[in-house]
Design a protein around this nucleic acid. Structure first.
Lengths: 205, 205
DNA sequence: TTTTGGTTTAACCATTTGGTTGCAATAAAT
DNA sequence: ATTTATTGCAACCAAATGGTTAAACCAAAA
C-alpha cells in the first residue's frame, strides 16, 4: 500500500519542482532538472503530472496559498486596523522567513501573467471580500479620526512594501553587500517592530 | 559607411531586446522574438551581437545604469541625509515611472544571479564608495541627535522598499485589483510626498 | 569601373527540450 | 492467481531554439 493522501514520490516531485521553479522561473526550469532533484526519471514526472504547466500550476497555487494564508486571516481577525496589521506583519515575516523566495516568485509570475495568473487570482479575491472589508474599516477609522486621511491604497501598498520587499531585496544584502545570512535573519526579526512603528507613526493620528 | 555612434539597426535591436528581455526574462526571451520586434531577421541579431548572452549583458547593464544613475548622484549631492533622500525619492520615482519594469527585472536577475551578476555589481559598488559614505553620514547624524539610532541598513532598506516595491507590485493593482493605469500613475506621484513624510516621521528625532 | 567592406537574407545545422512509448520489474489489491 | 497500480529505464520523436554559412546586395572608395 502506498499512502494516506499523496504518495511519497508525489511529495518528492512537488518539493523538487518547488525548488527548481522558484530558483529558475518557469521558462528557465527544466523537467530533467526537476526529475534529477527528485531522484526519479523523467517518465515518472509525466506519470504523476501530465505536463510542465500542470506541475507549475500546483507550485504556483501552493505559493499563493502560503502568502494569502497569512494575510487574509489577519484581516479577518477582530480588532482595530492597527491590531490587524500587527498580526499581519508578524505572521507574514515569520512565514516568509521560512520561504524567502515566495514573494519574488509570485510577483514575477504575476508580472509575466503566465497562464492568466492575474485573472485566476482575481477570481479568488472576488469570492473572499476580506480585503474589501478591511478597506472599508480603514475608511471608517479615518472618519472617526483614528487614522489620518490617506488613501487606503497607500496604506496597503506601504505595508506590503515594508514587509515584502526586504525578502525580494535579500540578494542585494547577502550577495552584493556581503551581509551574512544570520545577520539578515536578525534584521528581519527586528523589522517586525520597526515596521509597526513606522506604520503607526505615519498613519495614526 | 556608418554613422556617428550606433547604426539605426543597432538601436532598433537594443530597443527590441530591452522590451523582450524585460517582459519575459532571460530564459523566456527568444532571439526570434527580439528579431521580430526589431523587424529584422535572426541572422542580423548575431551579426550585431554575438550571442544571446552578449545582448542580454548590454540590456542588464543599461538597466542597472538607469537605476544607479538616479541613486548615486543623490547620495553624492551635498546636504543632510534627509535632503539627499528627498532628491533620491523624487528622481527615482520619476525615472522608474518611465520604465516601471526595471526594478523587477534587475532584482529578478539578481536573485537568479545570472552571469555572476552579483559579483559584477559588487565590483561596481567597490569603485564607488558613495553608498558607504552615506552610511557614515547617517551614523554621524545619529550621534548628533538628528536621526533616531536605528541601524543604517534599516533606513536604506526602508527607503528602497517604499520606492521600489510599488513598481514591482504594479501588476497587483492594475491587473488584479483593476485600478486603471492613470490612477496608478497618480498614486506614484502622490507617493513622492508620502514616502518622505513616512521617512521623516520614522527616522527623524 | 572595379574593389572593398559593411549589410541583408534564406537555408541550414546541432542541440535542447517537453513529452511519449514499449517493456520489464515490483508491489498490492481482488 | 490474476489483475491493477507503481517504478524504472532506454530509446525515441517533433518542435523549438541558439547559432552558422554562403551567397547576394549595395554604397562608397580606389
Amino acid at each position: 500500500m502506498k499512502q494516506t493522501k499523496k504518495s511519497e514520490t508525489e511529495q518528492l516531485i512537488l518539493e523538487a519542482a518547488k525548488k527548481v521553479f522558484i530558483e529558475k522561473g518557469y521558462a528557465g526550469a527544466r523537467m530533467q532538472a526537476i526529475a534529477d532533484e527528485a531522484q526519479i526519471n523523467k517518465a515518472m514526472l509525466h506519470y504523476y503530472y501530465r505536463s510542465k504547466e500542470a506541475l507549475f500550476t500546483q507550485i504556483l497555487e501552493s505559493a499563493v496559498a502560503t502568502m494569502s494564508g497569512q494575510i487574509l486571516p489577519a484581516l479577518q481577525a477582530k480588532g482595530t486596523v492597527m491590531e490587524k496589521l500587527e498580526l499581519l506583519v508578524t505572521n507574514y515575516i515569520d512565514t516568509i522567513t521560512q520561504n524567502p523566495y515566495i514573494p519574488m516568485f509570485v510577483l514575477n509570475e504575476l508580472a509575466q501573467n503566465r497562464l492568466n495568473f492575474q485573472e485566476s487570482l482575481m477570481a479568488k479575491m472576488a469570492t473572499n471580500d476580506s480585503v474589501e472589508e478591511f478597506m472599508k474599516q480603514i475608511m471608517k477609522e479615518q472618519k472617526a479620526g483614528v487614522l489620518r486621511p490617506i488613501g487606503p491604497h497607500h496604506l496597503m501598498l506601504t505595508v506590503m512594501s515594508l514587509i515584502a520587499f526586504p525578502f525580494i531585496a535579500k540578494p542585494i544584502f547577502t550577495g552584493v553587500m556581503k551581509i551574512p545570512e544570520f545577520m539578515y535573519a536578525q534584521m528581519m526579526e527586528e523589522r517586525k517592530q520597526l515596521v509597526m512603528e513606522i506604520i503607526k507613526k505615519s498613519f495614526l493620528k
